[in-house]
């Protein structure tokens, strides 16, 4: 449009105060004219704030806060697999199926999880408790096969151990 001020409504209010403070800590780690260096941290923070996934509005808010074009935020958010662009369950189970885990039986892990939860890889249980996701190597080959739930790694998985872990979750 022809006029400067007539841009879309500001979406900054979507970033909660606690999130903003945490983003500011990340921004402070970089030179003053390189705010956008904090984009990955900022996306993680607002994703946590929003129950584990990113809305377009939230990505726009991050773009606005870091003074970068929205498309550049979308590029980052769509590139990395730890950002979710659709709602996820309360517990996101990221199963590694990369080479070491595969050799140690990740196929069984996936089969057991799919059977127990009644969903396929990439899906969320109807009650919104679990999302099952296939991921690449998480750097824990020493305990293969493994998966990650939330911020915790679980290794040396067997069907029994998986049941124990899942039973302990709310």
């Amino acid at each position: 449009m022809m006029l400067h001020r007539h841009r879309g409504e500001s979406k900054l209010h979507l970033i909660e105060e606690a999130s903003r403070q945490e983003i500011d800590r990340w921004i402070a780690k970089y030179p003053a004219d390189r705010r956008q260096a904090a984009v990955m941290a900022a996306l993680r923070i607002v994703q946590d704030q929003n129950g584990g996934w990113l809305t377009t509005d939230l990505m726009d808010a991050v773009a606005e806060y870091l003074e970068m074009p929205p498309i550049e935020v979308y590029e980052v958010a769509t590139f990395y697999s730890m950002y979710e662009l659709e709602p996820v369950g309360r517990h996101k189970i990221c199963v590694c199926t990369n080479i070491s885990c595969m050799l140690c039986g990740s196929e069984e892990v996936v089969a057991h999880l799919e059977k127990r939860l009644g969903i396929r890889l990439g899906e969320t249980t109807p009650d919104g408790r679990f999302t099952l996701k296939e991921v690449e190597c998480l750097g824990a080959c020493v305990e293969a096969p493994m998966f990650q739930i939330g911020n915790t790694y679980y290794g040396n998985l067997t069907p029994e151990r998986i049941d124990e872990i899942l039973d302990a979750l709310d």
Partner: peptide, 29 residues
Amino acid sequence: REIAGVPELGATGRGEHTTIGTYVEKVVS
């Protein structure tokens, strides 16, 4: 980004899933 000064197109996704687009569809202005 460099000439027109309207960074609206970008490469989203990764590897074989990379696509060029505006992510949220909008008319290139």
